[in-house]
Design a protein around this nucleic acid. Structure first.
Lengths: 107, 107
DNA sequence: TTTTTATATTGCAATATTACGATAATAAAT
DNA sequence: ATTTATTATCGTAATATTGCAATATAAAAA
């Protein structure tokens, strides 16, 4: 086993869980915070500030890109990673919708 | 390796990532929705409605309990799982705080 | 052109997660 | 007391994730 049975869930449940999952790693939380708060959008700056190997950071960046949260722009020989604010806001809304519609309780 | 390097992140980053991670599985999203929307708070009802093995659902319930999102109450020979609304709201606020304070962008 | 610098990709080892059958534990029903 | 029903835990197999070294790629600098 070991494989998530996506077929038995709705697309919306799978999508929502996927957003949560991508955000569910401290390195990816840290990357987003560094980019936004410290303006460290250059890939190599993130490697130095966070303290994981370059290959590892690159992998985490790829996952954040996979849900559209980050846009990468070539800047000379570096890469500048920026938060896609439209996507950011959309995902925040989706998460809030989940929290707000799941409020009623049985007991 | 395969082990997350929690030591290099702040407690707040680890906590936040952990909340996201627990919510990052469609079965756990489904469980929360079933409990709240369909009032199916009895463990066995969840097993039947969701369609995963009883042992698997029990494991997912345990993870939701681990971040305080679910309270379990014995009800005869069954268990009634309810959402802890205080915790629910607190976590929603934390996630929104993250989204709101990570808004500013560099490029 | 060669070297340097920055990032992505590949391959791999260690660990974690998902899922389930089997079994234990507990409480109601007979 | 025995049976039945419900949930938790254990053990295990399959898969996924994390992390890094090594290597490939690409662009600027020398």
């Amino acid at each position: 086993m070991g494989i998530t049975k996506s077929q038995i869930f709705t697309e919306s449940q799978n999508d929502l869980a996927h957003f949560f999952k991508v955000l569910g790693h401290p390195a990816r939380v840290a990357i987003l915070q560094h980019i936004s708060v410290q303006n460290a959008c250059i890939c190599n700056d993130l490697v130095e500030e966070i303290g994981l190997a370059q290959a590892t950071i690159s992998q985490h960046l790829k996952e954040l890109k996979s849900i559209g949260l980050l846009d990468g722009e070539v800047e000379g020989k570096s890469m500048c990673y920026c938060i896609n604010m439209d996507r950011w806001n959309t995902i925040q809304e989706q998460l809030n919708l989940f929290f707000n519609t799941t409020k009623s309780n049985c007991c």
